[in-house]
Amino acid sequence: MFYGLSGVRHNSYVSDSKLFPVPADRNAVVFFLLLGLAAPYLVSSLYLNSYILPWLIWTAAVLGLNLVTGWAGQLHLGYAAVMAVGAYSAVHAAKFGIPWEFALLIGGLASSVIGSLFAFAALRTKGLYLALTTLAMQFVMDWVLTHSPTIAGGSHASLQSPTFALLGQDITSDAGLYYVAFGWCVLVTIFMLNLRRTGLGRALVAVREKDFAAAILGVNSFYYKLVAFAASSFIAGVSGAILVSTFYFLAAPEQFAVNVSIQVLAMVIVGGLGSILGSYLGAALILLMPGVVNQLFSLGANLLGLDLGIETLAHIPNAAYGALIVIFLMVEPLGLGKLYANVRDYLMVWPFDQLKK
């Protein structure tokens, strides 16, 4: 069978802790990696830049939020704020003539510094109280961006991003910008895949499950919360900088408003807390599905000869999109990543699962 484990034996801890104990999972990852590398030659530039490129960047950002929310269990409603710090820091650094390689690092480090402040709030609060604290910090950042012309240019202004370049070479082609987003997403994915096998990943899970019990076992909960917020913020900062420099081409306050933080958190929850595959699926559903639903409703109205007004076409797809999310969560509350795990687990024992009945 496709997911069969025949011939797979684990006689050591190293073999049992492989990234992909199931060969089919490894083959699927290799297939999609090759598909991603060949994407510029398989799809048009319109779909490449309008759909796939932002999906990859937002997936990297969702993986960063999953690190602090899914792994460490800290509810974060100010994620767009740290993305904004990284975006504006990197753009200003690039404008000063700093190469983009270092500008991205500056954006990530600046976000880590600001994001670490959330960890101090996490030391004193948790749950909904932490969510409100991070939300308050999001509102503070929104105010700073709209009232600081030096940073953002003002409430209705935008900061133009310099041409993105790597190793001194300007990257202006659609394929080049896509590969930048693809490479960053792959790097973040590799980091997250290896994180769950390390002592740091196990400590974060212990803090998530019960920080008091983890402290009794010798796990310094505040230290690991600080690491989680700092690492997550670094990923957010670099993701925000790449988003601005390869997709938006300018930075504006509304790109990192509070609704963006809620949207990214929705991607994490719909995809599945602590699920790497779920981060990809959740980002795809929240980011790409509204456009797909709008097209389907417009096509259906034309086929049925219905004369739907512009306002109706604008609201009905949103309602259907929201209902779709509710249905997904009702079918599997643990997210889309768990749906895949359920199908895989079923196929692992099919057709021999009939023997247990």
Score class of each variant (00 low, 15 high):
1 M>I: 14
4 G>L: 02
5 L>F: 12
6 S>Q: 14
7 G>R: 09
12 S>W: 12
13 Y>Q: 14
13 Y>V: 14
21 P>W: 02
22 V>M: 14
22 V>P: 04
27 N>Q: 12
29 V>H: 05
32 F>S: 07
33 L>A: 15
34 L>V: 11
36 G>I: 04
44 S>K: 03
45 S>A: 15
46 L>T: 15
47 Y>S: 13
57 I>D: 08
60 A>K: 07
66 N>R: 09
67 L>S: 02
72 A>E: 06
73 G>S: 01
75 L>Y: 11
76 H>Q: 10
77 L>C: 08
78 G>D: 03
79 Y>T: 04
82 V>D: 00
95 K>E: 14
98 I>Q: 02
103 A>H: 05
114 I>T: 05
115 G>I: 02
115 G>E: 03
117 L>I: 05
127 G>L: 02
129 Y>I: 03
130 L>H: 02
134 T>M: 09
135 L>F: 13
136 A>Y: 11
142 D>F: 04
146 T>I: 08
147 H>N: 15
150 T>H: 14
159 L>V: 15
162 P>E: 03
163 T>K: 14
176 G>C: 02
181 A>P: 03
181 A>I: 12
183 G>W: 02
184 W>V: 08
185 C>Q: 02
187 L>T: 09
189 T>P: 01
197 R>N: 07
199 G>H: 11
201 G>Y: 04
202 R>V: 08
203 A>P: 03
206 A>I: 06
209 E>F: 00
211 D>Y: 10
213 A>V: 13
216 I>H: 12
216 I>P: 04
218 G>F: 06
219 V>G: 06
223 Y>Q: 03
237 G>N: 04
243 L>N: 01
243 L>T: 10
245 S>K: 09
247 F>Q: 11
255 Q>M: 13
260 V>L: 06
265 L>A: 11
273 L>G: 01
274 G>Y: 03
284 A>V: 05
284 A>Y: 06
287 L>I: 08
291 G>H: 13
297 F>T: 15
297 F>V: 12
299 L>D: 06
302 N>S: 15
303 L>P: 01
316 I>C: 09
319 A>H: 00
329 L>V: 10
330 M>P: 00
332 E>I: 00
335 G>S: 06
337 G>E: 07
344 R>K: 15
344 R>Y: 04
349 V>A: 07
350 W>Q: 01
352 F>D: 13
